[in-house]
Amino acid sequence: MDLTTILQQLVNGISLGSLYGLVAIGYTMVYGVIRLINFAHGDIMMVGMYFAVTGIVAMFLPWWAAFLLSMVATALLGVLVDRLAYKPLRNASRISALITAIGVSFFLENLFLVVFGGVPKAFPVPSVFGGVINVNGVIFPNIAIITPIIAIAFLLILLFILHKTKYGMAMRALSFDMETVRIMGVNVDMIISIVFAIGSFLAAVGGIFWAMRYPAINPLIGIMPGLKAFAAAVLGGIGSVMGAAVGGFVIGLSEILIVALFPPLAGYKDAFAFLFLIFVLLFKPTGIMGEDLERGRF
């Protein structure tokens, strides 16, 4: 493999990894505040893609308006899912909430199958993201360069919110001890809603960029990236936002590099996330950022 290919694959891996990272943040934040694995998170990402397509194709919006609308609508969907399905189970056993989460996941998948059918739909990629860029003779797709920049920008904004705003501090406090925060007069339900909104918003961002990377979408498309993003969240230390981002990069890069180095394994690409998850549980169950979890989350 020559240097050009290595460079291309590296950028490709970082780009894929930043998508996993964006989705992983939603898993990790929801887990942080209500200790729930939100199985529907991957499907929320899928819904974000369909919202964007609908905006462009059916509502004839300019791409940026459609994307923005999709992100906001998906954020609202996340809040709605929490309010309708998860909130009534806040004090029930953990298994009830988990079963409901899988129910929501299956519901979204099948609702969209009924509405849009199982045949993959073309995602209209705006021309800004479609082309390639030539850096000193090495060619990269635009999207591979833009994705990580967008992802890092959103990560920085999120870290700012978490550490510098009142709501962010409430979120971090919530992950320690919900009861104390409640007693202190914070509207816990609202904070949880904001967490779902942020997570789902970022899932929509991840979904839209995923769809521009692989521009054919179907209602089951969220499952695999969702699983890999979860593996990323565990790898990073579930509950840690930085960890989720780092975990996403590690998983995305390894996936691309393993396939690049051992082409016969390409068919098993989707099995890697699973193996990663097993290895993390075996050797580093607290995750990369796990040490800090006793003191502070996010």
Binding site: I37, F39, L98, I102, A231, F274, L277, L281, P285
Partner: peptide, 11 residues
């Protein structure tokens, strides 16, 4: 932790 669910789903 609730890893069994996600691991078996992945499996």
């Amino acid at each position: 932790g609730d890893y069994l669910a996600i691991v078996t789903l992945g499996f």
